[in-house]
């Protein structure tokens, strides 16, 4: 981490953390207790849809969809500051400890662990619910974002016995027993398109839930959040550029901000509907 090639990826991750914290805080401010329902439901929907898509992708690639295939994916994004210790990586069991988490660090520095915990508590369960159609069991008993723990501990269980007989062979290779985990191996996963997808889809989920539960008030909360976010992220990018004695120009932003802003690439329409895109442009991009 913090090497020449890794710093831009870390900055992109911090932009994602900032999006969630800023919009989440504004939602809570504007909508009060209802705001927490908005945020949690947004993360749930986001997680479930991501899980379902991941499963479908593996199916289309002709792969099985057990926990092992999930862990073997390489075209994802993982901030280099994560220190993850895989304990078990098998078809039926996925255990891992996270010893350092840039999202938790980001939230703690900004007194945002309340918002951060909403993400941690909801996402893991939602993702595996989507990935396994509700048949796996996700456990997150230790949480770095929380007040007591010095690591996160994930344990996911996915049992052939909990699937109908005709689905088992599709998901599990029942001829082989699960293999032991590899030795802890830090992989650099830097598919920034994946992070771009997360950024825009998370924004869209928050928008949709804010609108569903709060109507115009909800949308206004998002708009206010985007305006604050524009200011925050602009300052962050300038600070990061200054720290590296680089100009904060289009090239720097392209490397350090997770969304491609080049209009020719037209990424927004891939992830946002018309209203979401308009709000984003009016309240974030114009000020950013």
């Amino acid at each position: 981490m913090y090497s020449y090639s890794e710093i831009p990826f870390q900055n992109q991750q911090d932009c994602l953390s900032s999006l969630f914290l800023t919009l989440g805080s504004q939602i809570m401010k504007v909508m009060g207790r209802k705001g927490e329902t908005v945020i949690r439901k947004a993360v749930q929907k986001f997680g479930v849809s991501l899980g379902e898509e991941t499963r479908e992708k593996l199916k289309q690639e002709g792969k099985r969809q057990s926990l092992k295939e999930l862990a073997e994916q390489k075209d994802l994004f993982l901030d280099p500051r994560f220190r993850i210790m895989p304990i078990r990586t098998r078809q039926q069991e996925l255990w891992a400890e996270v010893h350092t988490c840039p999202i938790a660090d980001y939230m703690k520095e900004r007194e945002g662990t309340g918002i951060g915990l909403m993400f941690c508590e909801e996402f893991c369960h939602a993702f595996f619910k989507g990935y396994t159609d509700g048949k796996a069991q996700a456990n997150l008993s230790k949480v770095l974002m929380g007040p007591f723990d010095n690591h996160c501990r994930f344990s996911i269980y996915y049992r052939p016995a909990n699937l109908e007989a005709d689905k088992r062979e599709q998901v599990f290779d029942q001829e082989t027993t699960g293999e032991e985990a590899d030795l802890p191996d830090r992989k650099l996963l830097h598919n920034t398109k994946w992070l771009q997808k997360l950024y825009l889809r998370l924004y869209a989920s928050l928008y949709e839930e804010a609108e569903a539960l709060g109507g115009k008030e909800g949308i206004c909360a998002i708009a206010l959040g985007l305006r604050t976010l524009a200011e925050t992220q602009r300052k962050d990018l300038e600070k990061w550029a200054s720290a590296r004695r680089m100009p904060c120009d289009a090239a720097f932003i392209e490397d350090n901000y997770p969304v491609q802003l080049d209009e020719e690439k037209n990424v927004f329409s891939s992830y946002l509907n018309k209203e979401e895109e308009t709000l984003f442009r009016e309240n974030f991009l114009k000020r950013f």
Binding site: R33, E36, T37, I39, R40, K41, W95, E121, H125, A138, N139, L140, S141, K142, V143, R153, F154, S155
Partner: peptide, 27 residues
């Protein structure tokens, strides 16, 4: 409820059962 039981004494090599069970009004 959101039940988290990421370690149990019925797994080799674990030293405790770790319960973290949540019920959030938002749900």
């Amino acid at each position: 409820a959101k039940v988290n039981l990421a370690t149990t004494l019925t797994e080799r090599g674990t030293e405790y059962c770790s319960f973290h069970v949540l019920l959030n009004p938002a749900d």
